[in-house]
């Protein structure tokens, strides 16, 4: 599923505008520990977290993640936002908590298209 489609399906906020909307989401990873994501996430996954600082984007870029979703109404820091737009990595937002958004995305990704 493309990032743009996920935004529509789950009414997500796209903080980064049009950046990276055609990236393909191949799975997801949920963690707020940066080294956990560094060590165990896989390329193409969407990262669900409550961390909002610039290092999140550095990791998303290094690991070739498809996008980052900030939960519970969190918004990205200014530097994170600028870096994400420059690297073409979408930062998305939702009011949902981690459990709920992860469940929704899990179900969507497992639906036969």
């Amino acid at each position: 599923m493309k990032v743009a489609e996920l935004i529509t399906q789950l009414s997500l906020t796209a903080f980064t505008g049009k950046a990276g909307l055609d990236r393909e989401i191949e799975g997801g990873y949920v963690s707020d520990l940066l080294s956990d994501v560094m060590g165990h996430s896989q390329a193409g996954q969407i990262w669900i977290t409550l961390q909002t600082h610039k290092n999140v984007i550095a990791i998303a870029s290094l690991k070739d993640l498809s996008a980052v979703i900030l939960v519970k109404g969190n918004t990205p820091g200014e530097e994170a936002l600028a870096q994400a737009i420059e690297e073409g990595i979408p930062i998305l937002g939702t009011q949902m908590d981690t459990f709920e958004i992860a469940g929704r995305i899990y179900n969507l990704l497992r639906q036969p298209s």
Binding site: D32, L33, L34, S35, D36, M38, G39, T49, Q51, H53, N55, V56
Partner: peptide
């Protein structure tokens, strides 16, 4: 608080 310092850094290095 930034999400660093989980005590996984060195083992990540070792595993990779």
């Amino acid at each position: 608080e930034m999400g660093f310092g989980a005590g996984m850094g060195l083992s990540n290095i070792k595993n990779n």
